[in-house]
Nucleic acid binder design. Structure first.
Lengths: 161, 161
DNA sequence: CTTTTTGCAAACGATTTGCAACAGA
DNA sequence: TCTGTTGCAAATCGTTTGCAAAAAG
């Protein structure tokens, strides 16, 4: 729901470096395009889910998304939300992961460049940063062939302190 | 993500700083002691769970533990396993976390020093290393008050390659 | 002998599935 | 039209809880 007027010069809140180049609307259009490209039909519900994510930088649980959806589509079902979350993250439009406490959350994905997250443990507002520990010289034991990694920093954001 | 080449380096230390100091038996005794210290009674099942973890370096799912337990105590119940896993991780004897795919796993904990994990995506054999990205100079955005972090590297261990 | 722990069964929350009705391309 | 999508209900998975019987200290 883009309920704020198009004022390109004044972002409401700090966008992360992945999406700041794009307005929420552009980002939504981009997501929808990626979905069409993957052969998905664009339904009202999916359009609505897309705008929920393009308007929010941070992670949302399936329940969060459902609650937002219900406001616009009172008859929406939980399984539709789940199904679409799964499809959207399978095709890379959303990024998902399991939080510290194990809860599954989703966030609109940045396909363009590698980064990590700094996450507020209170409001879950998330900012990205480019520093990656894997760029450092570090002597790892055991002769593993390295595939990927996970690095997140948790803290309390300015407005939650 | 940046695909870093597996740098075939020799281990910095020839030992795993967490486990090499103690044999499996010593480690088990240590775990049992910690449990008694916390007011837990040592039952046969708990002794068995402890030795499962002290004999295995790597993460185990509740189901893994249950399957091991059943071999020795055919009438053991799933909830006893869960209850004990939870208590043991609450008192720091076990370390738990949610894997990439969201599955909850447990591992005998190292209480003595901070470290991170290098985990085999195939067999889940885990080695620890002392390098911590938080020791590096990195300017983070957003004025967050930093609380904690998570850093894991995933790969394929030597014997799984 | 007292208190904790166990095993059973049933409850629970989160996620998935089968299927008939419906809607997008 | 014609296939993909929705909503409903029920199934499933992993985990937790209440309680009486059994075991530890």
């Amino acid at each position: 729901m883009s309920d704020h007027q198009a004022n390109d010069n004044k972002p409401l809140h700090s966008h992360d470096p992945c999406t700041s180049a794009l307005s929420a609307e552009e980002n939504a259009a981009e997501m929808l395009a990626a979905m069409t490209r993957n052969g998905l039909r664009i339904t009202d519900q999916r359009r609505s889910m897309v705008s929920i994510f393009s308007d929010h930088d941070g992670y949302l649980s399936p329940k969060d998304v459902y609650d937002s959806m219900v406001r616009k589509y009172p008859s929406v079902s939980f399984d539709t939300v789940y199904r679409n979350l799964r499809m959207m993250s399978e095709m890379g439009v959303l990024e998902q992961f399991y939080f510290m406490d194990g809860g599954l959350k989703f966030k609109s994905n940045c396909l363009s460049h590698h980064h990590h997250h700094l996450i507020c443990v209170n409001c879950e507002k998330t900012v990205t940063f480019d520093y990656c520990p894997m760029d450092q010289q570090m002597n790892l034991p055991g002769g593993y062939k390295i595939l990927n990694h996970r690095f997140e920093i948790y803290g309390v954001c300015e407005s939650c302190q």
